[in-house]
Amino acid sequence: MDRRRKIIGYLVALTAAAVQVVGGAGPASADDRGDPRDEGAVIFRGKGIDACQAPSLNTLSAWESSPYEAVGVYFGGRARACPNQHYLSRRWLTGAKDLGWRVLPVYVGSQSPCVSASHKRGFSISDDEPWDQGIEEGEDAVRRASALGIASRSPIYLDMEAYNYRDADCARVTLSFIRGFSRAVGHLGYIPGFYSSANAGVRHMDNARRDGRSSLPEVMWFARWRVSPSTTGEPNLGSRAWTPHRRIHQYAGNVTETYGGRTLNIDRNQIDAPVAIIR
């Protein structure tokens, strides 16, 4: 099936799904999605880490003495900084689960054309078909997650590094890609999440919410460092938006910590959001 027929098939299926929403009003907005647990999600509230490489199971075992109980895992995407994940596998995910760790699956796909980080500029979203590209990468994310034993109703967090959302053309392309990605991930039974800087991508998403845009991510993971950890009170998010249990605050980055004789360079996160369901 060629790309055009594939996209048309998506739109037909998604239009039919939207009609089934109560009152025929279409997908719920970021203000009124309700509790993700009602949709089969598993929620974790507490502290977590993310690291470029998935830590070994021995390290996770040693870190049981830490205040952290969740770990972000970069499982796929063309712009992933650490593509050679030495430990990440179905066995690793099962082992992490058995040790009591919750998992946040992160997909680092194509990046905004006006991304700030120079090392991400070689992975730009296409200006021509950003929606289609978002759908294709959303499908890829679901395939990779499923192959690792991450079940439906798990979140998939799209990592979009900071970009200049005030550039109107760039913002249009980036938003179209994000919406396509979110639409595909949601249609395939997973929960579309989004990670970015609070002052860039996250603010852009909240502006889109205020404008009434549909197909936005359902969970918001915002980076704002050097402040107290909190999933509430973020100034770039509406107070009711992405609630309840739909927020993660990355409050510190590139810090080194040691527990049980094992040292990791990590980012710190305060979590009140869905985590992976491991088969």
Rank of each mutant, 00 (worst) to 15 (best):
S239W: 05
A147C: 01
H86D: 14
L93T: 08
L104G: 02
G189W: 10
D2G: 14
A79F: 10
N58G: 13
V115I: 14
L57E: 02
V173D: 05
R240S: 15
L216D: 05
R121I: 01
L216C: 11
N269Y: 03
G233P: 11
S124F: 02
H204Y: 04
D2H: 07
G26I: 05
S197Q: 11
P67E: 05
T15H: 09
Q85P: 07
R144N: 13
S124L: 06
Q20T: 14
A168M: 07
A54S: 15
L104V: 15
A141Y: 12
R91D: 15
V202Q: 05
G100E: 09
A30I: 13
S228R: 14
W63G: 05
R37W: 00
R45H: 15
Y251E: 07
Y163Q: 01
Y87Q: 12
G193W: 05
A241N: 10
D35S: 06
G134S: 03
G109H: 06
R90Y: 09
S230F: 06
N236V: 00
Y87R: 04
S29E: 03
I248R: 03
T59K: 03
A62D: 13
R33Q: 13
C114G: 11
H204E: 14
L188G: 02
T94H: 12
S154V: 05
A276D: 08
A168D: 13
S196G: 07
G138N: 11
R262I: 00
R247W: 10
R213W: 14
R213M: 14
S239T: 12
A18S: 15
E129Q: 13
H204T: 01
R246I: 03
R45M: 01
A200S: 15
H119R: 11
F222N: 07
V22R: 14
G24P: 04
G100S: 11
I277Q: 15
T231E: 03
F222H: 13
S118Y: 09
V108G: 02
N199R: 12
I135L: 15
G253S: 12
S116K: 13
S29H: 01
E129W: 04
